[in-house]
Design a protein around this nucleic acid. Structure first.
Length: 264
DNA sequence: ATACCGACCTGTCAGC
DNA sequence: TGCTGACAGGTCGGTA
């Protein structure tokens, strides 16, 4: 589910509404998967903490809580919802923070690929920020890779935050086939990819992310960038530029969509 | 260092 | 009406 634009949208929404609020008590489900830190420890450490700031690092949502950080990764289907306690608790709710303002922050995740943990050192993520990296750094990061450019874009140790949608969409806009070996790309192609990736991510953030099946922001509102997808999940449909049917292949175990005419 | 695969989970949809 | 298989915004670990 959520990639950089969706996580950014959620983090901004949670920050706007919960900054300055205080966590009073917590509840965690019995399912073990979502908790990298033991739930009892999180319950003890989170209670009484004020929320100084909420922001995004890669695909992670980071809560600054004094000398502690609470890190949430949403996996494929995770949601963070700011809710009125009188509203029904949705199925697959795995964590609830009860706040001093009377509201609740709920973590809901059907597939349970999401994770949460406490950090005592400043969380830096796994790679570089796609919206901050320069053209020179971008080319230097990817050129040595002995793998396809698509697999390299998905590698969170290089750039963090890019997932399947925005990898496919940025490669389309740069006119580069997903299976091309990273080390065979020309400098002009790295530059086009850098530019298309940043513009796609910024546009998606401005539209509140992509709602393909079930993504919503922290207020339960869907995004609109799915209306701007040119290849992702458009298998067999005509390319919006040239009319050639969009093709689906598997690269790095992920469904990969591209236009065989526009991407070389 | 990389490639490939299955595993982890649930839900949805197409096809029979 | 069901069943089965494929697929879905992600990541990890094992084995070549």
């Amino acid at each position: 589910m959520p990639e950089l634009p969706e996580v950014e949208t959620i983090a901004r929404g949670v920050d706007e509404r919960l900054r300055g609020d205080r966590i009073e008590t917590t509840w965690f489900s019995e399912k073990p998967e979502p908790f990298k830190s033991p739930p009892q420890l999180m319950a003890k450490e989170l209670a009484g903490r004020s929320i100084d700031r909420v922001h995004r690092v890669g695909k992670h949502i980071v809560f600054d809580l004094g000398d502690l950080q609470w890190i949430v990764h949403l996996g494929m289907t995770g949601r963070l919802l700011v809710a009125d306690p009188r509203t029904a608790i949705p199925p697959h709710t795995h964590a609830i923070l009860h706040l001093a303002s009377g509201r609740e922050l709920r973590f809901v995740d059907a597939r349970r690929f999401g994770r949460m943990a406490l950090e005592t050192t400043r969380f830096a993520g796994t790679g570089q920020e796609p919206l901050k990296i320069s053209k020179d750094e971008f080319a230097a990061l990817f050129r040595p890779r002995k793998t396809s450019i698509k697999a390299a874009l998905l590698n969170q140790k290089l750039l963090h935050g890019v997932g399947n949608i925005y990898a496919d969409e940025s490669l389309f806009r740069a006119g580069i086939r997903p299976r091309r070996m990273a080390r065979h790309l020309k400098r002009a192609e790295f530059d086009r990819l850098h530019s298309s990736l940043q513009s796609v991510l910024k546009k998606a953030i401005s539209l509140g992310g992509s709602s393909v099946s079930d993504y919503v922001d922290s207020a339960g509102v869907e995004g609109f960038f799915q209306l701007e997808h040119r290849v992702y999940l458009r298998t067999g449909q005509p390319c919006l530029v040239c009319g050639t049917p969009i093709r689906r292949i598997v690269v790095g175990g992920r469904g990969t969509h591209y236009c065989p005419h526009c991407q070389r």
